[in-house]
Design a protein around this nucleic acid. Structure first.
Lengths: 149, 149
DNA sequence: CCTTCAACAGACATCGGTATCCGTTGTTTT
DNA sequence: AAAACAACGGATACCGATGTCTGTTGAAGG
């Protein structure tokens, strides 16, 4: 729950591309599928969304593949969610009431708003840069710690 | 996204039952389905989860129906989520890595933890009492405001 | 005791997200 | 120009969540 498969795949792919951003190299769909544990025949669908949304640049043919269009710092998780046809659906009432709004809320309105607010805040403030930094942390930890267990 | 249908139905039903708690009366599945906008033939599945989880008490036959087993203040949204076979799945790595943990995180681990933490915190601190209070607010607003638009 | 009511339980049917497949288009290399 | 490469795009298959239906069990009223 929380995120559907497609959205989760998108995040994984973006995480890989973010980690690869500095190199300037492109990553092929096949590699990406393997690295991000995405079904090989499904990844084209996932990537298409990201390309259309302008987050990822695609190039065909020899030396082709995918690459972020801008620095990881400038791509928020909200960008990725939006690309994966995620509707922030703040507007949709938990009860499906058309007339539900802050002035005339349904009984779940307040609690729902809090949840969405919390998730949206997270998605807006978190960028792919944080993902990258963790890759570094990962490497550091691996090298510094004795590979005991 | 965020919540699946079954979970959302569960919340709606609980909201109705919470609003009805003080009366001590039971609500029949059919009424509940109508009030909470749940498919009439699906609600039995939804309610069963809540009954098994001990949040709701069911009685068959004449005058039967559903009722909360305890005061709305003592039922958190997390209780409802757990009942709707929601796995808090803090443990599951975003990349599906078995070895992913705080000391050896995958590149999405930190961001993921933040999201789950935020959602879990919300679910734990929010109770059905807040739902009820809004019902009151709702009534107040309706009576106090001129029914202009 | 019999009838009625209403939750229970499980067998289906349906639908949409997920996954697979395959031919097409565009790019690079030779 | 031809061949190899890799993303694109749509058609189709699959599967689990959702929704429907029917009969059963248990409780209350007459």
């Amino acid at each position: 729950m929380l995120l559907n498969h497609t959205a989760e795949y998108a995040f994984r792919a973006m995480a890989i591309l973010a980690g690869n951003y500095d190199s300037g190299e492109r990553v092929r769909a096949k590699e990406l599928a393997e690295l991000a544990a995405i079904p090989e025949h499904y990844i084209s669908k996932v990537m298409r969304h990201l390309v259309v949304a302008g987050l990822v640049e695609a190039l065909r043919g020899h030396g082709g593949g995918f690459r972020l269009t801008r620095a990881p710092e400038r791509i928020t998780f909200m960008d990725v969610l939006d690309a994966s046809d995620w509707s922030s659906e703040d507007r949709r009432c938990a009860f499906g009431f058309g007339a539900c709004n802050p002035k005339n809320p349904c009984s779940l309105h307040n609690a729902w708003s809090q949840l969405h607010g919390c998730v949206n805040q997270w998605a807006k403030k978190t960028t792919l840069a944080e993902v990258r930094s963790l890759e570094h942390l990962h490497a550091e930890l691996a090298s510094q710690a004795a590979p005991k267990d």
